[in-house]
Design a protein around this nucleic acid. Structure first.
Length: 828
RNA sequence: GCCGGGAUGGUGAAACUGGUAAACACAGGGGACUUAAAAUCCCCCGGGCGUCACGCCCUUGCGGGUUCAAGUCCCGCUCCCGGCACCA
């Protein structure tokens, strides 16, 4: 045992063991090691974007929580693979590089270096032989490979589409990167532009992405967010034939309404086909192709003006729900297939081209938006559904969207809403004017970025052959070093200025052709990185089959819920595609996902502008990484986050000091039976709570146990402290190593699989305290043998003076006995 | 508006399946040890009332309810945090 007055010096201990882990490869796997692992556990955390500021406390919180889990599994004897990497491509890095005037190729390695230093310093169990850097050609070669697999499978298409354009970042943004109409990065209002872009057909997987959510063990909040994002809705697609301009607007017999050719029929998606009799007008998105056919000469000017205005107004203003509805009449009509009426067709920006068919049947009586629109423009608002206590003539003060029976709906009058949905769709279906239909809110994934700092999309555009895939053998398409990488408002990638780079022969016909100059979205980089980690040794394939089979899917993935719908959805999608193409045996990448909470400070959100950001380095310097980790895990439930109060770290710090002292001075003797009982109760609780990420209460239990060990200043027995050291190890790995070595063990504690075994017999209390209530109010507590019978408990309770007082003169009607907990006399 | 998650002492938070509300910790107060300090150990620490022993009453955002018993379950609200939002 070490000398007694050798006091705890965190930085010395931590430096020593970090070096030991490094020198002995404690956390590193060889390729053979990965292939041979007998009990693999893949412990993943979301890799960071290596900013110039360094790791922030949110990263450390997340990584520590994940690391605790990994270290726990390791102490239980599992082969734990815990990799880390750097998500270093993207607009964030590029903007920062522009601001600093440093080329990202110079800047990123510095940031990565700094991050690496910090990640080592917090004591994560990272396998530094299997890191990933998305900007490394050895990595993005395979990102490009992933693109090619989708391209070849017909899941990558190039289409011109209205896109979100940020005039400040001068780039296209994905819908998901537009927050409330503003650019996610710089809060500039976003405009619309039309550019040809590459899209991944994620919508083809919408139903599967939805269905599989039932099968995976994920945080409820995350699966809920994904369900909402996918946004499945059931309804019908109904057809409204155009009324030729030279035909009158008189109603016709509904049964005679027939479908015309596609160009002369407007299809709408509706979840309420039962209300079709109330569809008194129609609204198209301003961009809808049928507008051209519908518009009459006298309306041409206003329609043009409105379309131009809508195109210039970004998706921002368009998505404001609180503004008054705008729109213009096209002059054209189409026929309501249920009523035979000719109804006017309007265009309005509240109808979105990229949802459903870009056209709606407006039912002002039963849709809030249509109601508002009809009010605004003085359109008729008939009732076709009557709720409880209403009839066909009850006036509508607002849109009625509740349940009810049909009215003013011809032969369907009196029918229940839900029944009518089926009946009316079937009726229209007989004339090919309607069919049941499912729609999704999810959009295809636009992966094109007209920027510099990303992996070039591996396609060559040939005048003769069209877009041609770069042959896999020619990967990677290396991003050239371009000194002037600033985007301009041409909307064309900076790579388009580098002629010697973009000129290339067509892989098919050999003619001079042009490389795609867009780079891909960072979410493509991060959409498959977990597949690469175990296979970073293989440079001839993206992932080694044997290793992948052994290690994937990921056992536990821990990360922030800010990625609930983007990163996590794209990762699932890519995995599904690679599965379908025969590259993977599984189709869900993350068996278990847990979202961690957020850290606030002194009750307020942390932000640079408030100047209340926690800077980790000085804290680690003064109290050590172990105390910092322990405190972060202690301050609240991991999945909920917590409030970081600066003084609070004193608790965990003092605990480690006392643990150190107890271990240093421990004596070789038999454990005290009471302490041993408490030990086994603690083992039970901690073993139960760590896998459930209930770290704060597990730590409380460890503290409570140490208090018991040291109570009254008693000197600990070694057998009392040694298991505690093991249980502390996931949270405070360095001190645990040092104390473990101090007990005379060779090697790392994490190689010894020493997690203490729980012994129920030893944990058992011989006596228990039982609450005694009279009419539900606590009147006494009694200490009686564990598992005592009702009779024994009742006798002991009745012997209590205070209980007697309350039972005196009253008749006991009932006695409730909860063994080992409570006895309640019901008197009356 | 919709979907998640919350609201418990001075503070961060505990509370298993409905069964002694406030574990663990911070801050605060008192004491022991010490020349002193640090560290450590012991005691007090939701509010009110008693013959501050024994004991009683109130208390988990608000209002109802179920139950022998409710922080926990049910109904109706308020507020806070996060996400989505003209999705037909």
């Amino acid at each position: 045992m070490a000398e007694k007055d050798h006091s705890y010096d965190p930085s010395g201990v931590e430096e020593k063991w970090q070096k030991y882990w490094d020198d002995h490869g404690i956390n590193r796997f060889t390729r053979d090691g990965l292939r041979a692992a007998s009990d693999p556990f893949y412990n993943l955390m979301m890799f960071p974007y290596p900013s110039a500021e360094g790791l922030h406390v949110g990263n450390i919180y997340a990584f520590t929580g994940a690391d605790v889990h990994g270290r726990y599994q390791r102490l239980r004897g599992r082969d734990v693979f815990e990799p880390i990497g750097f998500d270093a491509f993207g607009i964030h890095s590029e903007n920062f590089a522009l601001k600093m005037g440093i080329h990202p190729m110079d800047l990123i390695p510095k940031n990565v270096e700094n991050f690496t230093r910090q990640l080592r310093r917090i004591g994560g169990m990272f396998d530094w032989d299997h890191t990933v850097d998305t900007t490394d050609p050895a990595y993005y070669r395979w990102t490009q490979w992933v693109f090619l697999q989708l391209f070849k499978a017909g899941l990558a298409e190039r289409k011109e589409a209205p896109v979100n354009w940020c005039p400040s970042c001068m780039t296209v943004l994905a819908n998901e990167q537009v927050v409330g109409g503003l650019c996610e990065r710089c809060d500039t209002p976003v405009e619309q532009r039309r550019i040809a872009q590459w899209f991944f057909a994620i919508t083809k997987y919408a139903q599967r992405l939805l269905d599989n959510l039932d099968e995976i063990d994920w945080s409820e909040s995350t699966t809920k967010a994904q369900r909402n994002w996918i946004g499945r809705s059931e309804g019908a697609e109904l057809a409204f034939p155009l009324v030729p301009h030279d035909e009158g607007h008189d109603p016709v017999d509904p049964e005679s309404v027939a479908a015309r050719d596609d160009a002369h029929t407007i299809r709408v998606f509706t979840t309420r086909p039962d209300t079709v009799f109330g569809a008194t007008f129609m609204v198209l998105a301003p961009e809808h192709p049928a507008v051209e056919l519908l518009v009459t000469d006298e309306h041409q000017v206003v329609v043009d003006a409105y379309q131009r205005q809508a195109a210039a107004t970004d998706l921002v203003a368009r998505q404001k729900t609180d503004k008054t509805k705008t729109g213009v009449f096209t002059g054209g009509y189409c026929r309501n297939p249920a009523t035979g009426e000719a109804i006017p067709v309007w265009i309005a920006d509240y109808v979105l081209m990229d949802y459903g068919t870009g056209a709606i049947m407006a039912v002002p009586g039963h849709d809030e938006r249509d109601f508002e629109f009809a009010r605004e423009f003085g359109l008729e608002i008939p009732r076709v559904v009557a709720g409880e206590g209403e009839d066909a003539d009850t006036p509508l003060e607002s849109a009625y969207v509740g349940p009810g029976r049909l009215v003013n709906s011809g032969q369907f009058d009196g029918m229940d809403k839900d029944e009518a949905i089926r009946a009316i769709t079937a009726w229209l279906g007989e004339r090919d004017l309607g069919e049941l239909r499912v729609n999704f809110r999810l959009h295809d994934w636009c992966i094109s970025r007209q920027r510099y700092w990303g992996p070039p999309i591996p396609v060559i555009h040939c005048d003769g052959c069209g877009p041609v895939a770069v042959p896999e053998a020619d990967l990677p398409v290396v991003l050239p070093r371009v000194e002037d990488f600033k985007p301009d408002d041409s909307g064309i990638s900076p790579l388009a200025r580098v002629k010697e780079w973009y000129e290339a022969p067509c892989p098919q016909c050999g003619a001079l052709a042009r490389r795609e100059t867009d780079v891909s979205d960072t979410f493509l980089d991060s959409g498959w990185y977990f597949l690469r980690y175990p296979s970073t040794d293989s440079d001839d394939r993206p992932f080694d089959d044997e290793i992948t089979k052994r290690w994937l899917p990921v056992d536990t993935y821990i990360g922030g819920n800010e990625h609930a719908v983007l990163h996590l959805m794209y990762s699932r999608f890519l995995t599904m595609v690679l599965h379908d193409l025969g590259h993977l045996e599984f189709e869900e990448p993350f068996a278990r996902f847990r979202a961690h909470g957020l850290i606030i400070r002194n009750g307020a959100k942390m932000s640079k502008s408030r100047g209340n950001v926690i800077v980790p380095d000085p804290i680690i310097e003064s109290v050590g990484a172990d105390a910092f980790r322990l405190y972060l895990m202690f301050l609240g439930p991991f999945e909920e986050g917590g409030d970081y109060r600066d003084e609070g770290i004193e608790g965990p710090r003092g605990f480690l000091n006392r643990l150190w002292d107890a271990a240093q001075s421990a004596e070789d003797r038999a454990p005290d039976p009471d302490v041993e009982r408490k030990l086994h109760q603690t083992i039970q609780q901690v073993t139960d709570q760590i896998p459930g990420l209930q770290y704060n209460t597990a730590i409380a239990a460890l503290m409570e146990y140490l208090n018991a060990v040291r109570s009254g200043g008693r000197v600990a027995a070694r057998a009392e402290v040694e298991p505690l050291v093991v249980m502390v190890a996931p949270f405070a790995p360095h001190i645990a190593e040092e104390l473990w070595a101090g007990f005379g063990h060779e090697g790392s504690i994490f190689d010894a699989a020493p997690w203490p075994r729980f012994d129920a017999e030893k944990a058992k209390e011989s006596t228990v305290e039982v609450a005694v209530q009279v009419n539900g109010r606590l009147r006494a507590t009694i200490r009686i043998p564990a598992d005592a019978s009702r009779e024994v408990a009742e006798a002991a309770a009745r012997a209590q003076e205070n209980v007697v007082r309350y039972l005196d003169g009253a008749s006991v009607r009932k006695v409730i006995h909860v063994p080992n907990r409570l006895l309640n006399f019901v008197v009356g």
